[in-house]
């Protein structure tokens, strides 16, 4: 099945306001979908509805063939949808490689019982994850940051590392909230390359971005929202 995310007639109302009105669209695997719109157009609420932070008043969300409407944030994240906020959220007192290993979706050593009863295999799995984390950093040219404490990195470096964490997690779909905000042009170039590289491998991205020029350079589809509705939906003809 080529479709990874399908949104059907999604609505959200509260206190007489309807920030999302009858929004429907679908996202194909290994695509980058750019969502733009003015402040208050409903973009962030849409992300909140997909990731379970808010429950829709009406409509359905399907991910990878399963309906996930109204499920909790944890359940949805476990399904494999990751959301990256505008501010990078790293584990600031851990080193960069520890951040990456912590992001791995499966690690037997995260369970106390496994630690006690399967200590040897847990250690070997953790070593493998550490190696994978270092390889990943090398792939994106960030290997020199591996042993640094995440909280000591610059804002741009933190953003790049948070993308490595997505790759480490092995998620299939990432929702990115203004990934280019606050970055210098060189870091934006680097981040764009990372997103495209990850898309080419197996990931799908839905991006909210105000930097339209840069967003359109990497996007395969463009959705413009206005007053909670989809105003235009364009296939940019790259795929």
């Amino acid at each position: 099945m080529n479709e990874i995310l399908r949104i059907e007639n999604l609505n959200k109302s509260f206190d007489g306001v309807t920030p999302v009105k009858d929004v429907s669209f679908s996202v194909k695997r290994q695509n980058i979908v750019l969502i733009t719109g003015e402040n208050g157009a409903g973009k962030t609420t849409l992300f909140n509805l997909v990731t379970g932070l808010e429950k829709p008043t009406k409509g359905k969300v399907h991910y990878d063939g399963h309906e996930i409407t109204g499920k909790s944030v944890l359940e949805i994240a476990k399904h494999g949808i990751i959301r990256l906020y505008q501010q990078p959220r790293l584990f600031k007192n851990l080193s960069v490689w520890e951040n990456l290993v912590s992001a791995a979706h499966e690690n037997a050593g995260n369970s106390f019982l496994n630690l006690v009863f399967r200590n040897r295999s847990v250690r070997s799995e953790d070593q493998k994850l550490k190696k994978k984390a270092i390889d990943l950093l090398r792939k994106f040219g960030l290997e020199e940051l591996g042993d640094q404490t995440a909280g000591e990195l610059s804002y741009g470096q933190q953003k790049l590392i948070s993308f490595c964490m997505i790759a480490m997690n092995g998620t299939k779909l990432a929702l990115l909230d203004e990934p280019f905000a606050g970055l210098n042009p060189q870091t934006i170039d680097r981040l764009s390359d990372m997103i495209v590289k990850m898309r080419d491998e197996e990931m799908t991205f839905v991006i909210i971005e105000h930097n339209l020029t840069r967003g359109l350079m990497i996007a395969d589809h463009h959705i413009e929202m206005k007053d909670g509705r989809i105003k235009t939906l364009n296939d940019l003809g790259k795929k």
Binding site: A77, F91, F112
Partner: peptide, 27 residues
Amino acid sequence: TPLCRMIQATRDDQIAVLSLGKDPNYY
């Protein structure tokens, strides 16, 4: 241990832990 690392990760940012599909309450 990886478990202690996750406990510290939860201390640093439990929303990030949740976003990664892990239960901060367990840690």
